[in-house]
Design a protein around this nucleic acid. Structure first.
Lengths: 217, 217
DNA sequence: GGTTTCGCTCAACGTACGTTGACTCAACGA
DNA sequence: TCGTTGAGTCAACGTACGTTGAGCGAAACC
């Protein structure tokens, strides 16, 4: 009977996480504009006013849910999308070592995760980046970061044979390709992509990514 | 002095086109949700009520501006995005004839047009497709159509050597790649893509698209 | 046990939006 | 010339939203 109920701090953290989870889910499936604080509160079984009291504003709720610093000038957590616990978009985990094949594989591995189940925070980000300015800014930063990492790993192979300019362009195209495939698969639900297994997609995409990473001319 | 002013029908068509142009521009740069009828009317130097009187609703204005039928069950004009006069997304004009190289070239040519200056109707469509259900539906239909065309052209080469299933998957990935690059370049404004000329992008992308269209395994 | 803290709710404000109906006035046809 | 049509405006309605401040009740502290 006398089961010790959760402490006050526990309850607080609990509902805070419940709100964040609901926000992530709704932001991911409807985007920033179509997601109302009332809907988030309702999904978290909480009063809308509480969401405001905890997160300050809808924008800050979004930032917290997607784990971006937002702030002002834009340095903040730097990496962009996913430094938090479960936020993703960590495309190309550590493509430091290995040849082009390893690079391609690491890209494809991250794609497999994306297609398997991209964290909702990243989906929320992708979903809103075309219509919500702050999300666009964060997405640009995150993608730029990925491009930089990938380009560095690419030009690490061929000493100075390849111009850094070229490496960044090819890296940008590779990243854009991943974005396009992810959008088509996860957000638009293109049939031919939905039907295919992550392995099939990875296999079909490998030569193309390899060509981009290698930089054949 | 007695300059014959424009006739009534002329004026009507004129302002109607002015409204549509303003709508396209705003939808393209802000998306459906953030574009208000008041803003469109103001840009067209017209009263908001007139926009309603001419187009019925914001949704129908969007549909007209992007040239989609919308309607109810979804058959309509079928093809999707661009049957109208200037609406684009006509990726791969007529890739009927020629080998894989010709296919790749035609894809790249359409990309060049996109990057050079994609029609605002298509930009409006792309901008809103992740957050506006009707736009998503139309985008799916348009992309499916492109995939079908591309897949047909692809499997026309190798008689029955390649499964139709595979052709469609590869075609879908090629189309998704183009979407990703276009989004990165036009809507997000990724620096490394913005800096590159259409020719550079086409050259860098060619081997990758060739790999997808060819279907190397 | 009394007081304070704080998680949480209730009711409401202000605003921006899509949308509507009545109205004005110049072009048009007879 | 006179009545009619229709392009365009004005003022307003209803609503949904982000946001706010006062208040309640149970846990926490002494």
């Amino acid at each position: 009977m006398t089961s010790a109920g959760p402490t006050r701090a526990e309850r607080r953290r609990n509902t805070e996480q419940r709100i964040l989870a609901a926000a992530r889910e709704l932001f991911a499936e409807r985007g920033f504009e179509r997601t109302t604080i009332r809907a988030v509160a309702s999904a978290a079984q909480v009063d809308p006013a509480l969401v405001m009291q905890y997160f300050g504003s809808k924008q800050q709720l979004f930032s917290q849910a997607v784990r971006i610093s937002v702030a002002g000038t834009g340095t903040g957590t730097g990496t962009g999308t996913g430094t938090g616990t479960e936020a993703g978009t960590d495309t190309g985990d550590r493509p430091r070592t290995g040849g082009p094949e390893a690079l391609t594989d690491s890209l494809l591995a991250s794609l497999g995760m994306k297609i398997g189940g991209l964290p909702e925070a990243s989906l929320a980000m992708l979903r809103s980046m075309l219509t919500h300015p702050e999300a666009a800014e964060a997405a640009r930063a995150a993608l730029d970061h990925q491009i930089t990492e990938l380009a560095a790993a690419m030009s690490a192979g061929h000493e100075a044979e390849r111009q850094a300019h070229d490496a960044r362009l090819h890296a940008a195209l590779a990243v854009a390709t991943m974005v396009g495939v992810t959008i088509g698969h996860q957000l638009l639900g293109i049939d031919d992509l939905r039907r295919a297994s992550p392995e099939e997609i990875a296999a079909a995409l490998r030569p193309a990514l390899h060509a981009l990473v290698t930089g054949a001319e």
